[in-house]
Amino acid sequence: METFKIVIAGVGGQGTLLASRMLALSAIEAGHQVKIGETYGMAQRGGPVMSHIQIGGEAYSPQLRPREADILIGFELAEAVRRGVTYLRNGGLAVINSRKFPPVEVTSGMMHYPTEAELLALLGEVTDDVAVFDATALAEEAGDPITTNVVMLGALTASGSLPFTRETVLKVMRENLRSAYFDTNVRAFELGMKGFTDSGRR
């Protein structure tokens, strides 16, 4: 197979790392090779974070080339667009949490957060295949906003683009997440699948 390439964009503390680990473990479970490249530098909570995931095929470096990702997963609106304009391939799929996590520069009133329309217009120059929905609201509905990452995982699975099945992802989640939170996580996963379908994938 050709290498399947995913970019995850978000801010520190959103659990992007857990999502990329679940995807990578699912890939291994399905018999594929996998690589994750992380960019977090000195980012503590609230700093920008990005993961590059490559599944299968012949890939060596953990860093993706620009314009080659098949899928962009945006845990945060602005970060999704920041990374998407660079890394998403033309016509690739973008799955985006519409929730905004403004940085201190914005919350303290020094800078403004662009509107959703302004941001998505930029991404629109790269692809028409965009699914935007409030994943954090769905995570709250599942019982804990911390499960936003699992909501995103569910949405991605619903897209049908992944080289492994829903059952594989659930199996990996069951084996690797704390059992006390498993039910909440499964609810979040299902809501994510529904969130993707309902988004209408503009």
């Binding site: 940085p103 201190v104 520069e105 403004h112 662009p114 930029l122 790269v126």
Partner: peptide, 19 residues
């Protein structure tokens, strides 16, 4: 390359400074 698009994105977006 997408130099122009990336430049416009940079203009629109804020930085997230370490704090």
């Amino acid at each position: 390359s997408r130099t122009d698009l990336e430049a416009r994105a940079k203009d629109l977006l804020f930085d997230r400074m370490l704090t």
